[in-house]
Simulated assay, not measured.
Amino acid sequence: MDIISVLASTGPFALLLVGLVVFVENGLLFPFLPGDSLVFAAAVVAGAIGVPWPVVIAVVTVAAVAGGEVGFSIGRKYGRGLFRPGAKIFRPEYLTRTEAFFARWGSGAIVLARFVPIVRTYIAPAAGASTMGRRRFSAWNAVSGLVWAVVLGVAGYLLGSIPWVAANIEWIMLGIVVVTIAPIAIGVAVKRTRAAESPDPRPEPTRP
Rank of each mutant, 00 (worst) to 15 (best):
70 V>Q: 06
73 S>R: 15
129 A>T: 00
61 T>I: 02
181 I>E: 10
53 W>Q: 09
187 G>V: 01
168 N>G: 06
49 I>D: 05
103 A>T: 11
103 A>S: 14
68 G>N: 14
65 V>K: 08
181 I>C: 11
33 L>G: 00
130 S>H: 01
203 P>D: 03
27 G>M: 05
66 A>H: 09
37 S>Y: 03
43 A>R: 04
182 A>T: 14
7 L>S: 01
129 A>D: 01
159 L>W: 02
201 P>Y: 00
150 V>H: 02
142 A>C: 12
143 V>M: 11
23 F>P: 05
191 K>F: 12
3 I>P: 03
108 G>F: 13
143 V>I: 15
164 W>D: 11
79 G>T: 03
61 T>V: 05
41 A>S: 08
10 T>Q: 12
183 P>K: 05
58 A>G: 13
10 T>N: 11
77 K>C: 09
78 Y>Q: 11
106 G>M: 07
85 P>K: 04
68 G>W: 04
15 L>D: 01
208 P>F: 10
101 F>P: 01
192 R>K: 15
143 V>D: 08
90 F>N: 07
3 I>D: 06
103 A>G: 10
137 F>E: 04
138 S>V: 14
45 V>M: 05
122 Y>Q: 06
80 R>F: 10
121 T>D: 02
197 E>H: 11
200 D>H: 00
168 N>R: 10
105 W>E: 08
151 V>Q: 02
176 I>S: 05
51 V>T: 12
118 I>W: 00
162 I>K: 09
132 M>I: 12
134 R>C: 09
94 Y>G: 01
101 F>S: 04
150 V>F: 03
68 G>S: 10
124 A>G: 05
41 A>F: 02
82 L>S: 03
87 A>C: 09
136 R>Q: 13
3 I>S: 08
8 A>Q: 14
201 P>F: 00
62 V>H: 07
194 R>M: 12
60 V>Q: 03
166 A>N: 13
181 I>N: 07
11 G>R: 00
112 L>M: 13
86 G>P: 00
30 F>E: 06
169 I>Q: 13
6 V>M: 13
147 V>S: 08
84 R>T: 13
127 A>D: 04
